[in-house]
Design a protein around this nucleic acid. Structure first.
Lengths: 121, 121
DNA sequence: CGGGATCCTGGATGATACTG
DNA sequence: CAGTATCATCCAGGATCCCG
């Protein structure tokens, strides 16, 4: 691989696999929570605690860190409303929305072939 | 989410996000080496050390573990040739090949939008 | 050649408590 | 409400040595 066609038949030097866009994207989004957050925000904007309640098992800390990461990468936007009490709304950026597409392809595969993967103990 | 359409607008109960196929697939393949191995094997079958040489930075241990994992999940096949010295050939299964497709979609996104992501220090 | 076994470390994550 | 700070934990992953 990698660019432009990781599809097949490329002998692959791989001198710097870390520089590979695919690996790069996976390193950013392949963590435990990012995809879940992106998918949720794909539906509608969320407030912080609203997200916190929607994602079972995530800690406040990790939600913060995940959002900060996605925000820093330009996938998620953060808007503060100086109301009382203050509210913060998170949403996908255009870039984030575009990522939703290939993610959906993967999701489709996951749903379709889920049963074919060996069961996990 | 998750099934069948994680695309958008789903309120998402998420009671068991671990059980979500998408999260599940990501947990299996979202590690540091699996995708690289899958993509390489997508081109042609590989011998162990051939893979080891092709993937810069991977340790023998992790290559072994990654292959074992993928094999156990049914994505990769392992065939031993009782030659001298013995040879072992790894290849994608049909399931593995099918995963290559959505992976390519993600790859395409990665290549296209790679520059738009905030640079990493 | 193709691994297995062991030891060890850093980074990712969780739990808990506190705050503007 | 939306975080920050701190401490504790866990495990992926690397290094190394050994073996059939």
């Amino acid at each position: 691989m990698c660019p432009p066609a990781m599809t097949l038949s490329t002998p692959v030097p791989l001198a710097e696999h870390r520089a590979c866009p695919v690996t790069d994207v996976l390193n950013r989004v392949g963590d435990r929570w990012s995809v879940v957050v992106i998918v949720l925000l794909g539906g509608k904007p969320f407030r912080f605690n609203e997200l916190h309640r929607s994602i079972e098992g995530i800690s406040q800390r990790m939600l913060t860190r995940t959002l900060r990461g996605l925000e820093h990468e330009g996938l998620v936007s953060r808007e503060v409303f100086p109301t009382n009490p203050p509210g913060v709304e998170y949403a996908l950026t255009a870039l984030g929305e575009s990522l939703l597409v290939p993610l959906s392809a993967l999701a489709r595969w996951a749903v379709e072939h889920h049963g074919e993967l060996a069961a996990k103990p």
